[in-house]
Design a protein around this nucleic acid. Structure first.
Lengths: 145, 145
DNA sequence: GATCATTTGACATCATGTTGTCATTCTTCT
DNA sequence: AGAAGAATGACAACATGATGTCAAATGATC
């Protein structure tokens, strides 16, 4: 098996933190033009046709309660609502309202345009390979934790 | 110039968010064994021989005030202290105390051992290439922002 | 030197996300 | 059925980090 230099990995770890920060800032900027925030968009986007809060959290890789708070905010602002779940009395289905969907579409359009621009300006990168390595790292971290 | 699929980049973005979360959790775990937290360790480690809060923030890529709060916590707990700065009356130098250095060494030992383990279990990854791609992305994001 | 812009730390406020606890609801096993 | 365990949302406390405002200190320009 090929042996890796721990120093290289350490640099990758720092780079990930840095890029993550930049990505979040960019995400906030994109969402704010539609009066939303990065996390609210992520939750809204993940909901799809209706999904429990716990399931949404799992898909996002977040804690349940973090999503719960965002979800309550979305409902308070009329972008989503809880609907009865025939399969589970307690786990209501969170679903985007028409208004929430409109906002989501706005942000998604801006996001797609933005990703396209970034992708075009990073022609030298091999995103397929990078993605594979990141997934590999995620798996190793889950195993180590 | 090679053209990149925006969809691939989008997947990379999601992977970065996921890995970043896992890394932070791992970092908290490592630091907590020495009674510290991830961010406090980062600040303590960046200080070196003494550095203003603002300079520390720049190196970490964080906001000045975020580091300020961490720094005050470190001082309150006796792990760092402010010293007079001959070059700047207002910008005092933040410096680790002997006790802070001891804690830092503990965490660094555990961290190095941990990175080594993760590096060993991800032999199939090319961290050099991944790092280059991440730096490329960081640059593109800074330009776009 | 005088003036204006920048840098810096202090202070406050806020959004995000984690952690822990609890009661309710569902699922599984016997 | 009944009991034990897991999943779920409500509620609260907390750490993290961003943002904005202010006054003091520094640096740049004229």
């Amino acid at each position: 098996m090929m042996s890796n230099d721990p120093g290289e990995l350490d640099e990758v770890i720092h780079a990930i933190a840095k890029v993550n920060r930049l990505l979040r800032q960019a995400g906030e900027g994109l969402a704010s033009s539609a009066g939303q925030t990065h996390s609210r968009r992520m939750v809204l986007q993940t909901l799809g046709d209706g999904m429990s809060v716990a399931e949404t959290a799992r898909r996002l890789g977040m804690q349940r309660q973090g999503v719960q708070r965002i979800a309550d905010d979305l409902v308070r602002d009329g972008l989503a609502r809880y609907e009865e779940n025939p399969l589970h009395k307690r786990a209501k289905l969170l679903k985007a309202t028409p208004s929430g969907l409109r906002r989501l579409r706005e942000i998604e359009r801006a996001h797609a345009e933005w990703v396209g621009r970034v992708a075009a300006s990073t022609g030298g990168a091999d995103w397929g390979a990078t993605r594979r390595d990141l997934e590999l790292l995620a798996e190793a971290l889950r195993d180590a934790g």
